[in-house]
Every structure is written in structure tokens, then in C-alpha cells.
Nucleic acid binder design. Structure first.
Lengths: 218, 218, 218, 218
DNA sequence: GATGAATGAGCATTCATTCAT
DNA sequence: GATGAATGAATGCTCATTCAT
């Protein structure tokens, strides 16, 4: 329990600081000082800063991938090989995202980390994520393909990433936006509110009519 | 001319390196070595690294804001106070974005910088952008308000940022995605292709039906 | 037996790594990792890194000193107080050196360690060796004195160390030299070959005419 | 002069500490503290610890190689293509060694550094020395070949390194030996004394009779 | 107007050692 | 008898910045 405590304290502190400032701007000294842990403890328990970053992600992505897989199992059982409707698929994805931090961690941090994974991943992290969670991702894409049969293959690819952008970008930059919304509209939103707001937008984006081939003129 | 050359070389090099690696990961030594310029030149000409970052942004955002203002001038003249249709508004926005780098710089870099502004902005940059380009942004939002009268104020705010996320996220992470698209669909897309693809998705997202107030259940 | 096994594994690994990389460049982590032994085991069994270094030397030097003493016993019995010829003395010395690793360890490592003792000994090791093997060394020097009566006392001292240099330096740097010899002369030498080659050179060096007192001019 | 001063102070301090303790045991902090110079100055002026080590060697070996080349030029002119006698060759070599530190630095340190080059060279230094001084070395070996025509090629190679061992080993470990000699024989030797003593031993070693092919038995 | 030299603070990492269990 | 966890000190190195010239 003593060992686990140090490891946990490092991970808890690291995820907060990474989410706040990014990887490069967060030094191991930052982490260990705030975690009240010896500086060398990170290297002792994780081996390197890179490995610590991966461990921080794993603590979120492992349960998330497991939940998503489990959800897809349930859906496939329920729909018996038949196409799962897009709304249901997105609904279950959102649920899986929401469930993970519900247990122990912060959804906001989870989202910030996802944002970092896209914008600051220095290769090692991209490879790690691809290697560990690529299979689950592809399984989800396969379901999505059935749910959007009218989309050309390439178009679906792009729209999926458009929508990923929508979600990750919004949720990872949440704090600043929430402040503005608080001030200007006196409306305090929670992450769950936002996810509810995101759903119709994401669905509409996925199912938008195909663009006309010629670029529009003035 | 010699001084101006040094300043230009620094800016040209800095924007490339910032776009490639982010702010923290790009050292002044990186920049000055590659620009074949004295290490002290950045501090001499710009004062600090922060000021250099702002200068890099200004070189893109100044002409962009000017063009967007000019485009809105033209639209307002043309529509004589009447509502500018959403598609036209988005079309002109896209045109303004595309025109800026057409002159001299790279669109890809412009997009990466925009992405960085959102994900790595350390306060000083956020403040700088808000102070210098906030007015133009609010002018655009005002037009958008007219074009989407059915949206509640807060919902418009959120959807605007959803769509900003879609665009910035996609275009700033373009390289990696393009590689995958190249490999999997043998389809080489240009930034202009992507913008064509983005248009209907963004429009559909903005105009998606409002979500039902109660959260969906399993 | 389990403990003894750990001790032996540490010593076996340490001597190889010390010989390869020197003392400072070989960390206890290096040793314990390669020996598949707990990191704390060195400090547990030996007390400190210094004590480990001494133990590594003792495992070679104890049997060597014993053999040399035994050889000198035999020679003194045989020559009955009469002078032992230089060649015989050197021959027996070489034999004693060769016999030690014949039992269990590597001659190459023995030589490398001797080289390290001279070039990297940090005081503690020099003192250890002097304290434990000084007597044997002086006994050998006494025999040498009888065998080279024509040499002034100081000259003998220096020539002995000249010759020690010849042997230790050559044998401890053997690998690099052997590689060159392999490449340039297609002649693969063994340590025993080298010792055969060294003998006449060492004898000639010891018995070289005294230098003329004035330095040679151009 | 101010810059040159820092560089010189670093080199002066580094060579002393390297000679005293070796490369690994001498930290950049050791050097910069004693040189009263900023810690970062080493990396600023030399780039890395490895480059500093090479610079320390270059400051001795550059003038040495130049002098040796010059000496060989003179000998070749004087002997007009005829064989240079071994004694003359060794004499000139010794002179070249002695002249270098006579100017500015310490012969003792030069010798210690040579010893380190053999026993602690970590690859980068070996390569550096080979690349920069290999030609001069081979020129000397060519002269030596003419001076010892009766030696088989391989035997000359080995004897050259035997004698190198004799000299480098003795002179680089000089301090400890000199202390003993002082105590036991009340004879205080200088490096020049030792070189005079070394000459006949080295010559005798090079010209020793070839060993009998069969190994001697007990 | 521009630069080479220098600097203090900070970086990730590795070290031998200790200690509770 | 042995070990996993932990630690304080030190390592080489990079950083943005300053300053005399």
C-alpha cells in the first residue's frame, strides 16, 4: 500500500499538471514537489518521463477501451448482426466516455488528455495509443460504417475526424469557453450538458449532404 | 534592409518550427541556428520569446482580420442591412482564410498556428489575440446571429465553438490524417479539398435540430 | 547455497563489467541487473561498491599470491640459497599468472583488472593490494635482487616497473591490439603466445646496459 | 582575450583534473568550480564533455605531432633515404615528447593523458586520435621498420606496443612510483632522468633475440 | 545595429546507499 | 536472508536572457 501510494500520488498529480500545462511545460520537479514525493521516484517507478505520460493515459484509456468494447458487445448481441443506428452508437460512445471518470477521475482531465494526445503527442505516445487501443478504435469504425452506408469510404473517414475534432477540441478547451459562457449568458454548463448539446450536432455533421463537387463562387 | 532581413528570416523559421513542434519544444537556439542568425537576435529584435510568438501570429492574423473585415463590408453593402445567409457567410470566411497564405505563407502553417493558439496558448497569447482581433471576431458573430435567428444565444455560442473545433482541429492536424487517408483510400487531398468537404458539415452542424432536453437513457 | 549463489553471480558479473568498462563507468545497477540479482544485494553482501571491487580482486590475487609463494618455496628449496637465474624466475612468475585463471576465470579479465588496479585505483584499492599482497611482492623482489646483482638498487626498482608496464599494459589492452594484429598481419595470437613473446623482451629489458650518464645530443 | 581566457581556464583546469582522476570521475561541475567559470561555459565553448576531452588532447597532441613530423623531416633529409638508426629514432621521439610541454604545459600531465587515452578511451577519443594523428604514427612506424629489418613484421608490431606500454605506463603512473623511490632509495628522479633510464631498456627490448618457438616447461 | 560571450535557473536522469519489512 | 521502495546528491546538458563591445 505504501508503494502503491507513491505511484498513485505521482499519477494523480501528473495528470492534473499535464492537463493544465501540457507535457513539455510540466517538469518532473513540478510533479514530484506537488505530489510530495522524491524527485527520483518517477524514474524509479516509471523509468522515464515518457513512460509516465503513457501510464497516465493508460489509467484512463484502459477502462475506457474495456467499457467501449463491452458496450459494443452488448449492442452487437442486441442487434444480432443488424445495423446499429448511428444515434445509438454515438449514445453508447458518449456513455462509455462518461463512465470512466465517474469512478474516480475527472472527466475534464480525461478530455484535456485526449486533446493533448492529438496536439502534443510526440510520436512515442501516438505509437503507444495506436498499439494499445487501435483495435478497439477500428472495431468502432466498423460499426460506424454499417450505420452510415450512404457515405463514401473516404468521406466517412474525414467526417469521423471532423466530429472527433468537434468533441475533443471543445471538451479539452472547456474551461476558457465555460468562463466566457458564464459571463455572457449567465449559464453554467456541465460537461454532461455539453455532451447533450454535442450529440445532435455530431449526428447532423455525420449525416450532412455530400458537398457539391464544384467550389462555390462569390 | 540587413536588419529587416534578419527579422524576416527569424519569423519565417519560427513559424515553421512552432508549427512543427509547438512553442515549448522550439528553443530560440533552434530558430536562430536554422535561420543562420545570431542567438541574441531574437531578444534584440523582439524582446522575448513571447513577443516573437505574438509577432508570428500577427503576420498571419493582421491580413486575415483585414480581409475578413473587408469581406464583411462588402456583404453588408450588398445585403443592405438584410440578413446574410449562413452559407454565404461561411463561404466568405473560408475565402478569407484561404487568401491570407496565398500571398506568401503556407496555409498548413496558418492552421497549425491556429491550433496551437487554442491548445498551447499560455495566457499571454490568448490575451494578445483577444485584444487585437476580438473586435473583428465579434463583428462576425453579430452577422452569424442574424443568419441563425432560431438558435438560442447560448446555443449559437457553443455551436460556433463546436465548428471552430471541427475546422481548426482537422486542418491543424492535417498531415497525420492525410497520411492515413493516402494509405487507406489512395486519395490525396489538398487543404482546399478539405475545406470543400468541411462546408456542408459545418453548415449542418450549425443548423442541427436542438437537442431534446432530457438526457437519453440506456 | 542460495546466498552463496548470489554472491558468486555478483562477483562473476562484476569482474566482467569492471574489466570492460572500468570501475566508475560500471554502476551497481549494471551489475545487479545483468546478474539477475536484487539491486540492494551488493550493499547487503559486500557493504559497499568499494568492498565489492576489493572482493573481485581478492578472488584473483589470493590464489595468485599463494601460487607464487609456493613456486618461490620450490625454487628456494631447489637452488638451496643459491641465486635463482633471472629466466627461471620470470618463467615461474609467468606460470603462476597463467595458472590462476586456468582454474575458473579468464586470464584476459585478470590482466584487465591488473591494468585497472594501476590506472584507476582510487586509493582504497591501492592500500588493499599493498596490505594484502605487499609481502609476497617483496619476497619476489628479493629473489630478483639476487638474480640481477650488477644492477644498482634504484635501477632495478625502475626496471621492474618498466617491465611491469610492458606486461600489464599489453595484456590489459589486449583486445584492441589483437584486432589490429588480426587485420594487418593475419595472425591470431593467444594470451599464451603473447607471454612467450614477452619473455625475451622482458629479460632483455631487465638486463639492458646501464644508460650513459650524459644525454645524447643530435 | 576575455573569451580566450575562459576557454583557457577551462582547458587548464580540465587537463589537471582529468590527469588526476580520469574522465568519468571528473565532473563538469568539478572543472567549472575550480576554474571559477560558469557551469554552462563548457557546453557553450566546447559543446559537450566529450568535445572538451578531445580539445584537451588536441592542445598536447597537435604540437607534438607537428614536432615529430618536423623531426622526421630533418632525419630523412640528413640520412637521405638511408636507414635511420634505431637509437637516433628513439632519441628524436623522446625529444619531441619532451619539447611539447616545455613550452607551456606539464610533461607529467601529458603522460597521464596518454595513459588515459589507452586505458579509458571510450571510443570517441580513440576515433578522434586515430583520425587526427594516425598518419603521423604510421610515418614513425615506417621509419622504425627500416631501423629493425631483422624483425618479422608482426613481432615489430608487438614489440612497439610492448615498449609503448613500458613508457606510457611508467610515466603516467609516475607519482606513486616516485614517492616509493624517494622513500626507499632517497633518490629524487625527474621525468628527464626517467626518460634517460628508459632509453637503453626500450632499445634492448626492441632488439631482444626472438623467442624460441617452443614454450618452456617447468 | 548587431553579436559573441557569458550566466543562473532549470531540465531529465542516474547514482550508491538505506531501510522497513 | 533478502528485497522492493525510497532517497539525497550529483550527473551532463539546455534554456531564455543579458551585456559589453
Amino acid at each position: 500500500m505504501a508503494q502503491s501510494d507513491t505511484v498513485t500520488r505521482i499519477l494523480d498529480t501528473a495528470e492534473v499538471l499535464f492537463a493544465e500545462k501540457g507535457f513539455a511545460e510540466t517538469s518532473l520537479r513540478n510533479i514530484t514537489t506537488r505530489a510530495k514525493v522524491n524527485l527520483a521516484a518517477v524514474n524509479y517507478h516509471f523509468g522515464s518521463k515518457k513512460a509516465l505520460i503513457q501510464a497516465v493515459f493508460a489509467r484512463y484509456l484502459d477502462p475506457f477501451a474495456e467499457r467501449l468494447n463491452h458496450a459494443l458487445d452488448g449492442l452487437e448481441r442486441h442487434y444480432g448482426g443488424q445495423t446499429i443506428p448511428l444515434e445509438v452508437l454515438l449514445e453508447r460512445l458518449a456513455e462509455s466516455v462518461l463512465e470512466v471518470p465517474a469512478e474516480r477521475h475527472s472527466l475534464k482531465i480525461f478530455m484535456k488528455l485526449l486533446g493533448l494526445a492529438y496536439t502534443q503527442a510526440q510520436g512515442h505516445l501516438r505509437r503507444y495509443i495506436q498499439a494499445h487501443y487501435g483495435e478497439t478504435f477500428h472495431r468502432f469504425v466498423a460499426c460506424l460504417r454499417l450505420a452510415t452506408p450512404e457515405l463514401p469510404e473516404a468521406e466517412r473517414f474525414w467526417r469521423l475526424h471532423f466530429m472527433l475534432g468537434t468533441v475533443v477540441f471543445t471538451l479539452s478547451g472547456l474551461d476558457a469557453l465555460r468562463d466566457i459562457a458564464d459571463n455572457e449568458y449567465h449559464e453554467h454548463v456541465t460537461v454532461r450538458d455539453l455532451i447533450r448539446r454535442l450529440k445532435p450536432v455530431v449526428a447532423a455533421g455525420m449525416l450532412a449532404p455530400l458537398e457539391s463537387p464544384e467550389p462555390a463562387a462569390t
